[in-house]
Amino acid sequence: MEFQRFKKLLSSVASNKSGFTLTEVLVGVLVLSVSIVTTTNFLVSMIRSNLANTTSLQAYYYTQEGIEAFRNMRDTHFMHNVNYRGGGVGFWGALGGFETDGPYTVGLNLAPSPIASGENISGSASWKLSAGDVHENVKFYKTTGDISDTDFKRSCVVEDYEVDDVAEGNAVLVTCMTFWEEYGRDREVSLSTILTDWKHE
């Protein structure tokens, strides 16, 4: 009798009664797969942040280029004894300067035309400075001389800035920003510098 009971118990264990159905297993596998794939994607995107580092390095240098543009313009204005922000009348007015109003788009002008007598001097400007929030893509100058659009956009803002010992209106805070999109997210690098009119008495 004991043996009969044991046999019955054994057969009930061996049968499918206490196991999983195929549907249950499939759902289980599905859930596990989804979680593994999600975790993997997360890990991979974490690891890919190194790639993002190189992209922000590019953006950093483009931003620096924007800042240097304003410094270069200021210094060029110094050399010509015009207001450090440029503008005004005459040739330098035609070249255009920067005021403390709103964003500017600044780009390289690597092929400025030679200045012939009587020609518009703006043709000689080494920078393309335009007011307004128009974000042109930054240009990359290839060795071959080709110019290609990058995926970056740059915008610079000039603001009044107060510095000790510098008369009001003789210092500006220039902030340049470079924007780009990465894996569907907006990213940005921003740099600032203070430019003063140290030539001003």
Binding site: T54, L57, Q58, Y61, Y62, Q64, E65, E68, A69, R71, N72, D75, T76, F78, M79, L108, L110, S126, F140, Y141, K142, T143, T150
Partner: peptide, 30 residues
């Protein structure tokens, strides 16, 4: 007042085959 623009393309071979890794940098210094 002069400025200098540096423009460069850096490349690194992919040791596992496939496209090389590329990075183009450009900046300007007044």
């Amino acid at each position: 007042h002069p400025k200098v623009t540096f423009s460069a393309v850096f490349e690194k071979d992919n040791p596992r085959g496939g496209d090389p890794f590329e990075l183009q940098l450009q900046t300007t210094i007044s």
